[in-house]
Structure formats: C-alpha cells, structure tokens
Design a binder for these strands. Structure first.
Lengths: 228, 228
DNA sequence: GCATATTTGTCCGTATGTATA
DNA sequence: CTATACATACGGACAAATATG
C-alpha cells in the first residue's frame, strides 16, 4: 500500500512554484518518504500512481526520480521501472568503509571544535536518550544519524556534509532490514557519550579511537542482521 | 559554438536502447563534454539547442540534466535554465578540504596496496611525464586526475571512488580558469613520483605527509590563479 | 506458449510564466 | 514597454517491453 499523500501544493497562490522547481520538490518529498520508511526496500514506484498521488505529470516525476537514482536511494531497471534500493551486505561493508574514512578523518583533521558542532553533538546525545527512555526507536535512529552528521561536520566542508548525508540516507535503507530496532540501537546509544565526551574535552584522538571501535562493532551487527 | 555531435544512435535497429536509458546516455555525453572543456564555466545549455543537437526530446534532455545538477557540474537557475558551474574560491577551498579527507584518509586506512592500484599509480606517473614531454597539457591534467583517483581507490570503497570522481570532475571546472596549464601542472608533475615512490615501498605514512603538502601547495596556487 | 493488459520509454504540442534586448 | 526568447509544466500519443491470466 502506498498511501499517497494529498500533496502539499501551496493553495495560497494558483501555481506557486515556491522557490525551486517542481522536480526538486518531488525529489525531496520522495526522499523524505523513502528515508522515513514510507516505502520498503524493493518496493516499486509506478510512475502513474506516484505522479497522480503527488499531483504532477509523469514527465516531471521522472525528472525528480533521476536525482534519487543518483543518490542511490532508487535503482532503475530498464523497462521495469524505479525500485527502492535493497542494500546488500556488500553495500553495508562499503558504506562503513566510506563512513570510517569521513568520520574518523574529520576527527583527525579538525584542529578545533566549533561551538555549533558541540551543540549539535550534545543535542543529539540528549534527544537520543530521551527518545530511548520513551521507546521512540525511530527517533533514536534519527538522533544517532544527527550525531554522526555532526561529527562529519568537523571537516568543515559542504561537500563532505553532503556526501555524509547521502551515506546516512542509504543507511536508513539498511536499517529497514532490522527486525528489532531497539536491540540494535540500544547498545550504541550508550556509547555515544563516550565519543562525545572526549570531543568536548578536546581529545579528538581518543574520540577517533572510540568511534572506530563503535563503527566496527556496528558494522558487524548490521551484517549479522541480514537474512541468510 | 556548440559543435553538436551527430549523435551515435544505433542505426542497426530502429531505436536501439543499447544498455541504459537515453537520459543517462545524455548525462554521460554532456558530462564528458563539460569535463573535457567543451563548455566553459558560466555557459548556458539552452534546452532547444542541446536537445536538437543530441537528437533527443527536451523532456529526455531535462531528465539527464538533473543528474548533472546533482553532480554539481551544472547549476539550475529557476526560469533561467541550466548553466555550467563557475567554481568560486570558496568552492576550491571546500574541494581541497574534501580531497584531503579522502586521499590522505585512504592512505592512512589502507593496510595493503593492491597491485591494481600500484599499476594505476605507475601508469599515471608515466603517462603524465610522457604527455608533459610532448606538451600535451590536457593529458597531463588527465594523468594527474587518474593518479589521485587511484590513491582514493586505496580505500577500497565504490562509494568513495564515486565521491572522488565527482570532486575531480568539479576540479576540471576550476582548471578552466587557469590561463597557463603548463605553469600550473609542471611543478606538481615533478612531485608525483615522490608520492608514488613511498607507496610502492609500503611507506604510506611518508606518502601521506607528502600528499598533504602537495595538496596544500596546489590549493594555494589554484586560489592564486583566481581573478580579483 | 499465447493473447492480453499494463507499464515504461520517448516523443510532440502547447499554454503559461519569466527574463532580457 | 513591448517583443522575443526561453524555461516550466502539463497532457496526450504510441511503440516496445514486460507482466498477467
């Protein structure tokens, strides 16, 4: 079931283009739905149904979908259509390699920790713990993602931020195979403070070492959660 | 002048789709032309002219262009059209930050150097020197790019390779501001062997240190080459 | 293995809005 | 200020590929 949204076309002005093109708004809307779990990996996105649901033409929809293919959230099978990507174990290994490079690298290259990043780190830890206490495991995942995004932000590079966003979006697809989000997130939740704490203290080397262990363990556990 | 290609539509069968969609072939064709300098930064790509030149409909062209926007080779100005990106000094700084993270990180994380990478490194050094000797400065740039791509390949991650490809493609746009390619590439050409040599010897730490210096100097010089 | 229905791939025409000479 | 050129977005068409009974 695809539960088409009614579409959030600004009703204020007749054909409010808002700020950017319809195609990019379509891409954002679908990206949000995919990463929020609105589609499952492997689901097809039939052009007719989706375009009707979003209230755009098929051509415009296809423009938007190209972007998501480039972001690896969708795969295109010629003459078959668009499908939500199903990450393989190899994908997971690749994702963790890329994350190690960026996150550990960001910690190593950073010569200072901007307050902006510190605040983001602390906010992520706190909101993660609050969400866990209330059993909102989806929000726990969001907090974890925000934390790792903040770490990547230490590199101070827009492009790196963007790359990281893409990797983490792909990760959400991998999370979808998790049957028990609590069992997965809870142990790592506890380790978040042990990474953020040395960052606060300016000891980035310790933070990097702990992050490296954390990522290694997480990789193992994600892989273990794969069927077969 | 845009020197439209005649298009390589298979004449054997009526509409041979070859292997992948027309949109992605369009994207590849335009990406090649942009990175090869077939368009200058700032050039507009009018839909009518380009689609006619490539022998595809405007709809199909627009699908392909989305990909290049996502790759940052084109910028989309609403109601104005698509333009080849003009990197700013800030972009250059960001690109070098991202490159340092990936290239130096790849050297650090690597625990071994696959023969495949070694061969690529040596081939890049050699073809660069040959091209320089014959004054083919565009090929010198290509060799340099191949070398850095190979270094990133040490990470052993497809996604990292892809990220690197994107960064280097953007770099070609920045090179376009260089008035004198020889003056820019020659000094770095000499430093290539000093980076590859320790890699061959398995001394990745030395290679990383030299690469870091190299990137710092290159960044300075690229920035210096910017007008104003 | 066949006939049929569905979906994709690609094109065209066009109404409307926006910028520029 | 009005042409003119161009981009935006839609809808319809139809062949080819694929799924379905």
């Amino acid at each position: 079931m695809l539960t088409e949204t009614t579409g959030d076309r600004r009703s204020g002005s007749p054909q409010a283009t808002g700020r950017d093109s319809t195609a990019s708004r379509i891409a954002s809307a679908l990206r949000d739905r995919i990463t929020a779990g609105g589609f499952q990996p492997g689901d097809q996105l039939p052009e007719e149904r989706i375009s009707a649901g979003l209230g755009v033409s098929r051509n415009t929809l296809r423009e938007g979908l190209q972007v998501l293919v480039r972001e690896r959230l969708l795969v295109h099978r010629l003459n078959r259509g668009m499908f939500v990507r199903e990450p393989t174990p190899d994908d997971v290994r690749d994702l963790y390699r890329a994350r190690r490079l960026i996150e550990c690298g960001a910690l190593r290259e950073a010569d200072s920790v901007p307050v902006r990043v510190l605040r983001a780190l602390r906010a992520a830890v706190e909101s993660g713990q609050r969400a866990a206490a209330e059993g909102r495991w989806r929000d726990v995942a969001n907090a974890s993602i925000a934390l790792h995004q903040a770490i990547a932000g230490l590199a101070g590079s827009e492009r790196t931020d963007d790359t990281m966003r893409g990797l983490l979006a792909e990760f959400r697809l991998a999370y979808a195979v998790m049957t028990d989000p609590r069992a997965f997130h809870e142990p790592y939740l506890r380790r978040h403070p042990s990474i953020v704490e040395p960052i606060t203290a300016g000891d980035l080397a310790t933070a990097e070492a702990r992050l490296r262990d954390y990522l290694r363990d997480a990789e193992r556990q994600v892989l273990a959660a794969f069927p077969r």
